Simulated scan of single mutants.
Amino acid sequence: MKYILFLQLLFYIGANNLFAQSESLFPEPYTVFKIKLSDTDTEITDADTPHFLVYGNSIKHGKLLLFMPGTNGIALRGPKNLFLTVTKQGYRVINLSYINTPAVARICKGETLNRNSNCAEKFRTKCIFGTGNFSLIDDQPQDAIVNRLTKLLIYLNENDKDGNWDEYLDDGNLKWEESAVYAQSQGGPIAAFIAKSKLVPRVISFSGGWAYTNSETKEIASWYYKESITPYTRYYGTYHTTEPAAKIIDSTYKAMRFSEEHI
């Protein structure tokens, strides 16, 4: 049964404050929010387009599904049919608005990469957790994915009293064990990077991006091979066999030890 539901996900992939928004795909009993980031954290000024959230009103205790779009992705334009499918399975969906340009491939390349084989790992660490010394992107600590998600949940807990959003927080910190991470393109490695150090219930990467340790040898970035706190049995990856990057995407999934039946 779980593989049938997963195949459904694969099939379906093809306003500025907290008020329930009308969405034709999500009629009652769904609740839809479009929340501007600066409403959740006044220090956030970059990539301030709204988050998109949806959940079924009958689901009061479902796990989160954190979705992250790829390069130039806009949260409000996410794969709504996918979101409809997973809400029917009991998830609450957050399509997160975050700084997704420039892509890692635009930064960690050429001589920059050759001088720093861990460029991609440092890039991801700053983008996701807001830590580390990496000066090649302008992201500030408040711009980090973890901060954006945390501040969003705190805001929801304060403003959507019937939403039980405190279930996803522990003393103001994220409870990763309550949040599956799904992502597309550049977002795919972000989801996997999170799962390497945080225990999450599920990881799905849709045509996940890639990175190298050297611009000449094209070896997969070393962080892909690191041990994972999240069990490998919880990782899934997809790609189209005719897309130009199919071979390298498959290589990254295998580097992260995805089982064959999960690719």
Rank of each mutant, 00 (worst) to 15 (best):
E158A: 15
S205N: 13
F6D: 04
L149C: 09
E219C: 00
I248A: 07
G163M: 04
T150E: 11
G188Y: 04
E158M: 06
Y232Q: 08
R77H: 03
L7P: 01
F6G: 02
V200S: 01
E219H: 12
N95C: 11
S97G: 13
E227Y: 10
H262L: 08
L84A: 12
A20K: 02
T213Q: 14
F206Y: 15
S222Y: 04
I248L: 10
V203Q: 06
D171E: 13
K80S: 10
K126Q: 13
Y30F: 15
I35K: 08
G73N: 02
W210S: 02
Y253T: 01
Y239S: 00
D46H: 10
S185A: 09
S97L: 06
K63M: 02
E227D: 15
A75C: 10
F52A: 01
D46G: 02
E121W: 03
G110E: 14
I229M: 13
Q142E: 14
F193H: 14
E111V: 09
H262Y: 08
R106Y: 03
T31C: 11
P189C: 01
L53T: 11
P27V: 06
L53H: 04
W223C: 00
A221P: 03
T131I: 08
K254S: 03
S97H: 05
D162A: 11
V181W: 10
S117H: 12
Q21F: 06
T87A: 12
T101W: 05
T42A: 14
D46W: 05
K151L: 00
I220T: 02
Q140N: 12
F6I: 14
I128V: 15
G73E: 01
W223V: 00
A20I: 07
A195H: 08
Q21V: 10
G237N: 08
E28R: 11
L153M: 03
H51C: 06
S135T: 14
Q8L: 15
L53N: 07
F52P: 01
T42E: 15
G90L: 13
R234D: 05
K226N: 12
G110Y: 07
T230Q: 09
L76Q: 08
L25Y: 05
R148W: 03
T242N: 11
G14S: 14
T131D: 05
G172K: 13
T150C: 05
E261P: 00
N114L: 06
F33D: 00
Y253L: 13
R115Y: 03
D138C: 03
R115N: 14
N164S: 04
R148H: 07
P50F: 04
V200M: 07
I137P: 04
W210M: 11
M256V: 07
A221F: 06
T252Q: 10
V200D: 00
T217F: 13
G78V: 04
I194H: 03
A180F: 00
Y30L: 13
Y236L: 09
T31G: 02
S38I: 07
V86R: 15
S24Y: 05
R106Q: 12
D170F: 04
G188Q: 07
G62S: 07
I99H: 10
S197W: 07
I229N: 00
A195E: 04
T131S: 11
Q21I: 04
I13R: 15
K34M: 02
